[in-house]
Write a protein that binds this DNA or RNA. Structure first.
Lengths: 215, 215
DNA sequence: TAGATTGTTAATCGATTAACAATC
DNA sequence: TAGATTGTTAATCGATTAACAATC
């Protein structure tokens, strides 16, 4: 049972292997995959993939490759997909309801247990099979449920206030989809999901290509 | 005018600086920021921030800091935010309309010029002020408009087929939000926006913390 | 002047790749 | 056996950090 700490670079690649195998190979019925194929998918060197497999404790067979199910299992174990983590979501706009409705989180062990909104007109309606709750219920809810992660899909101007409320109620992990930074105490983890990071990479690619073609 | 190529690591940090300054400092009226403050925001060493500023050609003032407007301008120039890039979006579900309605892309120079959907019942309705067009119009549209980027927010099972269609019409950059991998020719750039990457990091954090507390 | 902050060079560190041995 | 692929050690490369000089 390998439980050595793994580096941030590997943590970034593991879900990409996982996703490729899960969404492409498994549905095809492919049982085995080579390091070269996985590496090509991620755009990296195949030696690196073999190192990654070794780091999470997966052994391959020379001339054959790695078993898909073993890779999936190893990634789940190493990243902690089997922890059964409880989450709640605040903000049931388009983005919030898209995320709440995305069934894919279940296999990572994340359960969205409730959705909240500050807009009274939404209270009582359903999102992804969950009744939308008013923010005034938040404190009670957190007292009675084991919630690790709060998913924030509120408008940018509201996010600081709601983060403060959640932190005050004991939440220590925020997954923020609002395009705004949040000030938090040191012991709170915030992951900002910024679309601009992805966009910046595409724009830089375009810019580099245009410069190249001018030469 | 510095136009040296910058490394992937820096490309990842630049939009984060930009975002912090733009959404927090500018609204506050803060004109100047220190490398220490920027570094703390990103959770990195302040020497690295000074290196980054130097890499994009921004000069600071000892004892004062860096001017926010100069940083913003330099990042825009280095990443190519002023290129005026045309985009179209396919898939006007919750996620698609959330993205189409997000006004923040404009300042990066991205214009979403049209939205498409394969669902006939949606044709004619509006998303973010744009009439939803049928996929059958796609070819004509691409012939008559300058489109660099296709944003894919369709259901996972549909994404390969729609990507093939777009590529066939000459699109060479795909920004994929569907949780599925796309097979493409070598000259096509695909950026997969995988929520699972962010989730994996949070789960790994929880797992590490739990192990820590058991010691 | 003292002190705070930037700017840069050199050292370190870690991640990736090259080379090649091991295995089926 | 030959060939393909994994597995690992050593070398390289690049990114980060430490140290300290420069500047206001």
């Amino acid at each position: 049972v390998t439980d050595n700490p793994i580096s941030p670079a590997i943590i970034d690649r593991l879900p990409r292997y996982y996703h490729y195998i899960q969404t492409l190979l498994v549905p095809q019925g492919t049982a085995v995959v080579s390091s070269a194929e996985l590496a090509a998918t991620l755009g990296i060197d195949d030696t690196l993939t073999r190192r990654d497999m070794s780091a999470v404790g997966v052994k391959g067979q020379p001339k054959i490759g790695y078993r898909c199910d073993e890779i999936l299992m190893a990634i789940r174990r190493n990243l902690g997909f089997s922890l059964e983590v409880g989450a709640l979501l605040v903000g049931t706009g388009r983005l919030g309801s898209a995320i709440a409705s995305y069934g894919g989180f279940a296999q990572y062990g994340l359960r969205i247990e409730a959705v909240f909104d500050s807009d009274d007109s939404k209270i009582g309606s359903e999102v992804a099979g969950l009744a939308v709750l008013p923010l005034t219920n938040l404190k009670d809810f957190l007292r009675t449920h084991s919630i690790e992660i709060a998913i924030l899909t509120v408008p940018a101007p509201a996010v600081q206030e709601i983060a403060d409320l959640l932190i005050d109620c004991g939440v220590r992990i925020l997954w923020n989809f609002a395009p705004a930074y949040i000030n938090t105490p040191e012991d709170v983890i915030v992951r900002n999901e910024l679309m601009s990071v992805g966009l910046a990479q595409l724009l830089y690619h375009i810019k580099s290509r245009d410069l190249e073609s001018k030469k």
